[in-house]
């Protein structure tokens, strides 16, 4: 090769790029939420309140991690709420049928994993099927099975120690917050530092190229959807613990809240773009926001409206950020 030109391998650091990250905007929003909340209730902005409050909203947040991966893959999983219900119901019923609680909890995790794994298997074996159809069908089927098992009954009566999951604290920090932090670190490392994570991002932009490049694309899809099932089951564990009992209609609409958090967290719904930090911040923004609206005696329906608007607005804002040029051409 005649004129070998040296190509630079130094990454240029730009302060502008650093501060233009979506996450800073989220931090700002979170601060505003804190300030407004403390205006409503003077007790809000105390350390103990700030640390205790998350246990009211963290249950569904476990699904945010795998959902972030699913959406970075350019897909969506709307069956997670049903998976939560199914794994919770199976756990409760098996416990009441005499299975020891720890075993019932493992069964719960297994059910979730299998549920997510089935989605993944269907998607990899029948590539012609859209992820929307597959997870729509399993959304109906999983909740359907929960109804078949339990009718419209509730099931509970768990041992006392089980409530520790949702209500307990270690050294003043809620147990659920500790588990959440551990999960956040693990998922963050997997997504950003491993080749599995790199494959997820690559497939989000162009799955065909990844296949031609010799990536095990089917395996990645399978693992990501299985993780979604597993973490739904984790949510089921904590949710059931907090509620004390479960019924087939629990966690209805969780998929929406989780997708909202991921989208607000700056993950592009068309795939390939987003980091784990954004959705984590979004979990706390939405959580503290709902909590604050509760403090101000604002009714739940209004919260519903606000979450819906947040989803739409954040997706629109992302669009602006990702490709202002493309958007202008398209308008």
């Amino acid at each position: 090769m005649s004129d070998v030109r040296k190509i630079s391998i130094e990454k240029e650091w730009s302060w502008k790029g650093f501060f233009l990250q979506w996450e800073w905007l989220l931090v700002l929003v979170l601060i505003v939420v804190f300030l407004v909340n403390s205006l409503i209730s003077p007790y809000f902005l105390t350390l103990s309140s700030l640390i205790q409050t998350p246990s009211t909203f963290l249950d569904k947040a476990f699904i945010v991690f795998p959902m972030t991966m699913v959406i970075i893959l350019g897909r969506i999983d709307i069956s997670v709420g049903s998976t939560v219900a199914l794994s919770a119901v199976v756990m409760a019923v098996s416990y009441n049928a005499g299975v020891p609680m720890p075993v019932a909890m493992i069964i719960c995790l297994l059910v979730g994993t299998i549920g997510g794994g089935l989605n993944g298997l269907l998607l990899t074996q029948f590539k012609e099927l859209s992820h929307v159809i597959v997870t729509l069908a399993s959304m109906i089927i999983y909740r359907g099975i929960a109804y078949i098992i339990l009718g419209d009954q509730a099931s509970g009566g768990f041992p006392d120690w089980y409530s520790f999951l949702g209500w307990g604290s270690i050294a003043g920090i809620p147990f659920i917050l500790i588990v959440f932090a551990v999960a956040a670190v693990i998922f963050g490392l997997v997504l950003h530092k491993t080749r599995f994570g790199r494959s997820v991002y690559g497939m989000g932009f162009n799955s065909t190229t990844c296949e031609y490049s010799g990536l095990r694309t089917d395996r990645v899809t399978l693992i990501v959807f299985t993780l979604a099932g597993l973490m739904s089951a984790v949510t089921a564990l904590f949710l059931t613990s907090r509620m004390g009992s479960t019924r087939p209609n629990v966690a209805t609409g969780y998929e929406l809240e989780v997708i909202t958090m991921v989208a607000l967290g700056g993950v592009s719904t068309s795939g390939g773009i987003g980091k784990i930090g954004g959705p984590i911040l979004a979990v706390f923004i939405i959580g503290y926001l709902s909590y604050g609206m509760g403090l101000a005696n604002i009714q739940a329906p209004v919260v519903l409206v606000v979450i819906g608007l947040l989803l739409i607005v954040s997706v629109l804002a992302m669009k602006f950020r990702v490709s202002p040029k493309k958007r202008k051409l398209a308008m």
Partner: peptide
């Protein structure tokens, strides 16, 4: 799917 998911929430809340 995102737009109408958001609308679903807003309208149901309303």
């Amino acid at each position: 799917i995102i737009a109408t998911l958001g609308m679903m929430n807003v309208v149901r809340g309303l």
